[in-house]
Amino acid sequence: MYQLSICHLYPDLLNLYGDHGNIQALKKRMEWRGIEAIVYPVSLGDMFSPSDYDIVFIGGGQDYEQGILHTDLMERKKEGIREAVENDVVFLCICGGYQLMGLYYKTSGGDEIPCLGIMNHWTIGNEKRMIGDLIFSIEGLDQEPNGYVVGFENHSGRTYLGEGVSPLGKVIYGFGNNGEDGFEGARYKNVFCSYSHGSLLPKNPALTDELITLALKRKYKDFVSLQPLDDHLETKARENLIKRFIRK
């Protein structure tokens, strides 16, 4: 029996906007296929051991709570996370988690808060929040139509990608990374970053399955592919939004 260990980083602090749904989607879609999923909450004071996990999830938090974990993240977990990323562990980083993987976050007041610096992107704070439904397309994602992914964004930071990091997708509807260049999220090795919560994974099962597949392939040499599931509800939910916001 296959088994994957999922690390939920700071579940008590980074738990905004239905982040729980992403964990739940990973877990359920594994269980429905007889794959064992074990979720480990890793929070303040815990060490992060890079070889313990197959999938790592980092969600978003309010400024107040992100302030609480900053020292802990930089002092206790930074090197472990870097090692895991370089070893192709699968990461899903949403919103605040996405920003934390980058170089720094510059507040609208001009203060520069250093981030993990594992990926070459940076975020500039802004007065105006970018809020609303978000639709973007991921090239090569086997999800109808056109690899479209649906979610909801709510962020004031604008993120820009540097060399070595590629965007996760192209914005079809909404703002995405910065509302300017038409890109959304970031990809580096097996790290998937996005501003999209909503929750992201439940309505986008192909993306969920891709994360699970990558993790299984990395861990089990004999693993080939996941068996298909009945996704008609997820598909309907997604189509409903695409119809509403694009095909007017």
């Binding site: 906007y17 239905g18 739940q24 439904d133 909801f152 919560h197 909503g198 929750s199 439940p202």
Partner: peptide, 9 residues
């Protein structure tokens, strides 16, 4: 609330 993510909480 235009964001229904909260249903997951």
């Amino acid at each position: 609330g235009t964001d229904v993510s909260w249903l997951w909480d």
